[in-house]
Design a protein around this nucleic acid. Structure first.
Lengths: 204, 204
DNA sequence: TATATTGTTGACTAATTAGTCTAGTATTGT
DNA sequence: ACAATACTAGACTAATTAGTCAACAATATA
């Protein structure tokens, strides 16, 4: 019973957009309200702080992406192909962003995590949690690739950490340079880390 | 002639420290002044804004590090050994930071660049410039390694970009997790990207 | 339809922030 | 010594910010 509204969702969308296109520090509660078309009183009706809305929005956003990632990393897809498609997906996404809003924005989790990690512990914990989920997809793909002898990678967890670091580093590079073309080398770099040379990459 | 003071330098030290231990957004001009023990009037005597002091400080800090990097990447050191020492250096530095101030702080250029790149163009340009210098050291080491047939890397520039992305990504990971041990895998990851397997890495 | 409940509004306070300005102090070269 | 210069102090304004509150509006359900 009672009134219904999507203001809560609009505030969550707004905070993620502002953080991503700008930064956590440059995102004020007033700017979140403006972006969402919601008054401040309503903001504090739903959330108790900027950190609160950010954590909630990250979690909600992550839940909304799971299905897509489950599909991308489906066990029915050959393991190395999963990774290739993921690279392709990242490239397309950043290219689209550049076209639509003029900026390559990189990975919001990494950008935000790096900005606030010494100051906002609950946010940091949520970001680490979600980054961990992403890593799991890669780790399992590597394990499968190793099992079918496409690569030699007995320690899938370590390889997954390496690949994530490279992936996130390159996305950040793309953001700083505002250039999505940087991401073209993503599959080559990843497959090099997996011990596949140029020739083997072409064969795959 | 006239009065002399090191307030300008203290302000530059302060802004870098605050940005590194916190973030650009959380660093206010008042906090810079407090940290430096300088009044606001003096701040505006030397600098015209936060972005101004940050750019100046980055440039000055970079100049102060050149000699050290020239030594680390000296042509008299075997090329792959240069890279190994650089990894070692990064690990030591972050470990020391963790011990001294409780936090793994990662790379200030990447953290800051990622935070402000959509908002502060002069800062972004300076950061990109300095990141480019770092990349040159790696690129030249790779070229030398290729020349002496330690590795097969005809495109040294691309390999250097890959390595930098991985390096910076891993440092950011270490910052977010507040754990320097993450950096232990740095040499392994880099040498994997250079096409050296486990066995060849041990041999080198 | 009554009403409990959910959500909205905007004015309000208090704190923080960037940036200015004037009057001053210390020091160096002459 | 004495000026010209380099730097400092700190009070001030105006804008922005986070956060509160009480009165109000819409609606689902009994």
């Amino acid at each position: 019973m009672g009134r219904v509204s999507d203001a809560r969702q609009r505030l969550m969308d707004a905070v993620l957009k502002l953080i991503w296109t700008g930064s956590y520090g440059s995102t004020t509660i007033d700017s979140i309200c403006d972006q969402a078309g919601v008054r401040k009183g309503s903001f504090y009706y739903f959330f108790k702080s900027k950190a609160d809305v950010a954590v909630t929005a990250l979690e909600s956003d992550w839940q909304g992406r799971r299905a897509q990632l489950d599909e991308l990393f489906s066990a029915t897809v050959p393991p190395l192909e999963r990774i290739r498609q993921f690279c392709e997906f990242a490239y397309r996404k950043q290219t689209a962003l550049k076209r639509e809003c003029g900026c390559v924005l990189g990975c919001p989790l990494y950008t935000l995590g790096s900005e606030i990690c010494t100051q906002e512990q609950t946010l940091r914990a949520k970001i680490q949690e979600i980054l961990g989920y992403y890593r799991k997809y890669v780790e399992s793909a590597i394990r499968d690739a190793h099992a079918e002898h496409s690569i030699d990678a007995p320690d899938a967890a370590e390889k997954a950490r390496m690949i994530q670091a490279y992936y996130e580093g390159l996305l950040t590079q793309a953001r700083i340079q505002n250039d999505a073309e940087v991401l073209r080398e993503l599959p080559r770099g990843i497959f090099a880390m997996l011990g596949l040379g140029q020739a083997e990459q072409l064969a795959a």
